[in-house]
Computed example of a mutant assay.
Amino acid sequence: MSLSPQKPISAYVFDAYGTLFDVHAAVRRHASGMGPEALRLSVIWREKQLEYSWTRALMDRYVDFWSLTEQALDTAFSIVGMENPELRRKLLDAYWKLDCYPEVPTVLKRLKDEGHRLAILSNGSPQMLEAAARAAGIEDLLDEVFSTDILRTYKTRQDVYELVTNQFRIYPETVSFQSSNRWDIAGASAFGFRTVWVNRTGAADEYADLPPAAVLTDLNGLLALG
């Protein structure tokens, strides 16, 4: 599906975890010493990390994203019946330097070379996002890194997406927002962004009343949208 907006795109904004950075990279890096529960632990870790952000936002009881990441890992260890303080430390250390997906640096550089403003909009705490962008070698391509931490809440609160339009002084419909999370796409669509769902895993569609403008299997397809 092609993006054919009435107004040109002013900025390309990307979710971070699962969109630019592989959230399962930390466990994969240490999977050889974890046994058959490695994948299950990684999936639970991610699910609980997101669950805790949603419930905290709904309760208006903010805890920063790094703390949620630690709590989610502890829960994952408990669920799979694993207790390994040294592995816990290694996994948390690895989360600061998650691998980016292979196409990310090339796609961002192409968009930057075309004169577009680029930004991250993420639940991640500022230090986490800065470290991840630096490790991936993309920090110099980004005009802004927006963290929900400044608002002490999480997506899909609508004022989170407003961080972009307020800072860049642009209309929502001139923002192309990319996320691998369908719930995030729904929230950004409700705000008025033109959304691109990066469906890397072939997940089933949801939120039919808040559809994306385009669906891609990875970010390479973004270069073909016009």
Rank of each mutant, 00 (worst) to 15 (best):
S189E: 12
F193I: 07
L141K: 09
D143G: 14
W183H: 11
R169D: 13
A203P: 00
D159A: 07
A203T: 11
A132L: 15
D140H: 15
S189C: 11
D184H: 09
R134W: 02
D205W: 03
D159G: 00
A186S: 13
A131G: 13
V160N: 14
P172M: 07
A188V: 12
I150N: 00
S179Q: 03
V196L: 06
L141D: 03
I150F: 00
F193V: 08
G187M: 11
Y207M: 02
T195Y: 08
Q178K: 01
Y207F: 15
P172F: 07
F177S: 03
Y161N: 05
A190H: 13
E162M: 03
R157G: 03
T156F: 03
Q127T: 15
T174D: 10
D205N: 08
A135D: 09
D205R: 13
T148W: 00
A203C: 01
G124F: 10
A135F: 13
S122Q: 08
E206S: 09
F191I: 08
T156R: 13
V196C: 08
K155R: 10
W183L: 12
G192F: 12
M128I: 13
I185S: 06
Y207G: 01
L141Q: 11
A190F: 05
N181I: 08
K155Q: 05
Q127S: 14
Q158S: 13
Q167H: 14
R194V: 09
F191Q: 06
D159M: 08
S122L: 05
N166Y: 06
R152P: 00
V198S: 01
R134L: 10
A204D: 11
T148S: 14
E130G: 15
A186D: 09
N166H: 14
N181G: 10
V198T: 05
T201L: 12
Q167P: 00
N166P: 00
T174H: 02
I138N: 02
Y171P: 00
L121G: 10
A204G: 01
T148R: 00
T195H: 04
R169K: 15
G124N: 09
I120Y: 11
S189H: 13
R169W: 00
Y171R: 14
F146Y: 13
T153K: 10
G192K: 07
Q127K: 15
I170C: 10
R157H: 05
G202E: 01
F177A: 03
T153E: 03
T174V: 07
E130A: 14
L151F: 10
E162L: 06
D140K: 15
N123G: 09
A186R: 15
Q178D: 00
P172L: 07
Q127N: 13
S147E: 08
T195G: 05
Q167C: 13
S179C: 04
V196P: 07
P126T: 12
V145N: 02
M128E: 06
I170N: 04
L121W: 11
R169Y: 01
R157L: 09
T195R: 03
N181C: 05
A131N: 14
R194A: 10
A136T: 10
F177Q: 02
G202F: 02
T156N: 12
D140T: 15
Q158I: 11
S147H: 11
Q127Y: 09
E130Q: 15
E162G: 12
S176G: 09
A188M: 08
S189W: 03
S180K: 04
Y154R: 01
V196S: 02
K155D: 03
S179I: 04
S176K: 02
F191G: 06
